[in-house]
Simulated assay, not measured.
Amino acid sequence: MQKTFVISDHHFGHKQIIDFESRPFHDVDEMTTKMIERWNAVVGKEDKVFHLGDFSFLNREKTRDIVQQLYGSKFLIMGNHDRGRTKKWWLDVGFDEVSEYPLVYGGFYFLSHEPMYMNKNMPYVNIHGHIHGQKYEGNHYINVSVELWDYTPVSFEEIKRMTIPNEEQ
C-alpha cells in the first residue's frame, strides 16, 4: 500500500547549516549520506513524498544524483532557497512534480514552505518547514523541518494522529 510522507529543509550541500542549526554531522558529505539513509529507511519505492522546500544548494549534477538515490515519487513545494531556480530545473533533476505555491492536501492540510497565518477558529492544519528547530504553539501548525524529525520523512498517518482529535475522548 502506498504511503505519503512530508519533510522539509534538507539543505543538501549547505555547509553552514550544520553550525546554524547544530546538526549532528561532521561535514556535508556525512550529512548527505545520513539524510539519504534516513529517507530510504522509511520511504518505499512506490511511496510519495512532499518536500516542503529548501532541498539543495548543490549544482544540477550533484542534486540530480541525490534525487535519484531517494526512494518514492517526489513532489517539491519550492522554498525560499529553491526559488532561484526554475520549476524546469527542479523537474530536470528528478522531481516528479514541482509547485511554486502552497497546496491543499486531503481537503484539510495546507502544505507550504513558510508557515501560513492560521486563525485559531479555522479547521485546517498548516504543514510547513522554513523555521527549522522552532515550533509554533497550537495544533494548527506542524513543522516538518528535518531537525525536528531526526532527518527522516514523516508519514501522513503520523500527522493525522497528531492533528485529528480522538473522537472517543
Rank of each mutant, 00 (worst) to 15 (best):
R161W: 12
H14I: 10
M35D: 06
K62R: 15
K34I: 15
H140M: 04
R64A: 15
T32R: 14
Q16T: 11
G79I: 07
D96I: 02
G13D: 07
K87L: 08
H113K: 03
I7S: 06
I131K: 04
L91D: 06
Y117G: 09
G44I: 07
N121R: 09
V49M: 09
V104R: 07
G84I: 08
G44V: 07
G44C: 08
L103A: 12
P153L: 02
V146F: 00
E61Q: 13
F55W: 13
K87V: 15
D54R: 10
K34T: 12
I36K: 05
V93F: 06
G53L: 07
N59S: 14
E46V: 03
V43S: 04
Y136R: 14
M1R: 11
Q68K: 15
E158C: 00
K48M: 12
G84A: 08
R85W: 13
H113Y: 05
L52W: 01
Y101L: 12
N40F: 03
Q68N: 14
V98L: 06
W149Y: 14
N121M: 09
M162T: 02
N59P: 08
S56A: 13
H11I: 07
F5H: 05
D27V: 06
Q134V: 01
E168R: 13
R161G: 07
T63M: 10
F12W: 13
R23D: 01
K87T: 14
K3Y: 04
F95N: 04
N143E: 06
K120Q: 09
E114A: 14
G13L: 11
E157C: 00
I142H: 03
G133K: 11
I36P: 08
I77K: 06
I7P: 02
D92W: 03
E100N: 13
I36M: 10
P115D: 07
H140T: 06
P153E: 02
E21F: 01
T33H: 11
W39P: 01
L58K: 14
T32N: 07
